[in-house]
Simulated scan of single mutants.
Amino acid sequence: MSRPLAPLLQLVRQGAVFGAVGLAATLTHVLIALALEGLAGVEALLANLIGYTCGIGVSYLGHARLTFGAPSRNAAQFARFLAVTFFGLGLNQLIVWVCVHRIGWPFWAALVAVVLLVPGPTFVLAKLWAFRRPSA
């Protein structure tokens, strides 16, 4: 009976761990971005870019080891991960630009939109492409 549920349970576990690792990477990103923008007066898009970049290491190591149980020393996998990350960054920057510069939201509100909209597509790309297992 548990056999048919195993793939679903693995997906749920991966989703939960992806969320936890993503939260750690996002906190790294957001805290650095807010500090740069609020305390150092760095422009919102640059502060966001620097914060996002700081979260990449947390994200890759956490997702490779914890989320997907993949080796962290794999150049091809890291390159795919970077492609997913840059897709996420592009989506992230687009959301910040639209929210801050077009709609007029405060930077913190744009970051809330980022946190709500970016993880879903990046999980799918990470699972199905960046950290995919080689076929037997």
Rank of each mutant, 00 (worst) to 15 (best):
V84F: 03
R133F: 09
A16W: 05
S59M: 01
G69C: 13
Q14V: 09
G57M: 03
A24L: 11
V96T: 01
A83W: 09
W129F: 10
R132L: 01
R133C: 05
F78N: 04
G22H: 00
K127Y: 14
G19I: 00
A83R: 06
A47R: 00
R132E: 14
A83G: 11
H29Q: 05
P7N: 00
A126F: 06
A33C: 07
W97N: 03
C99S: 14
A76G: 15
I32C: 13
V42L: 14
A25F: 02
G88V: 01
M1E: 09
P4S: 04
G38M: 02
K127W: 09
T26K: 01
V12S: 10
V98W: 11
T122D: 03
F68A: 00
A33D: 02
V12T: 10
S2R: 12
G62N: 06
A24M: 03
N92D: 14
R3E: 15
L27V: 10
A64G: 07
G38E: 08
V115I: 04
N74Y: 13
A64T: 01
L49H: 11
S72R: 14
I103G: 03
H63D: 12
T122S: 12
L5M: 12
R132S: 14
L89W: 13
A70T: 11
W105C: 00
T85E: 15
G69F: 05
A76F: 06
F18N: 00
R133S: 13
V98D: 04
V112H: 02
T85G: 14
V58R: 00
Y60Q: 02
L27E: 05
P4F: 01
L125N: 04
S135V: 08
F86S: 03
L31Q: 12
L111V: 03
F18D: 08
W129L: 07
V21E: 06
L94E: 09
T28F: 10
H63L: 06
T26E: 05
S59A: 14
A109R: 01
G19S: 08
F131T: 06
L94H: 09
R80C: 09
L39F: 15
L117S: 10
A75G: 04
G62P: 12
P71T: 04
N74V: 08
L117W: 06
C99F: 13
F131P: 05
L31P: 15
I95E: 08
A44Q: 11
G15T: 09
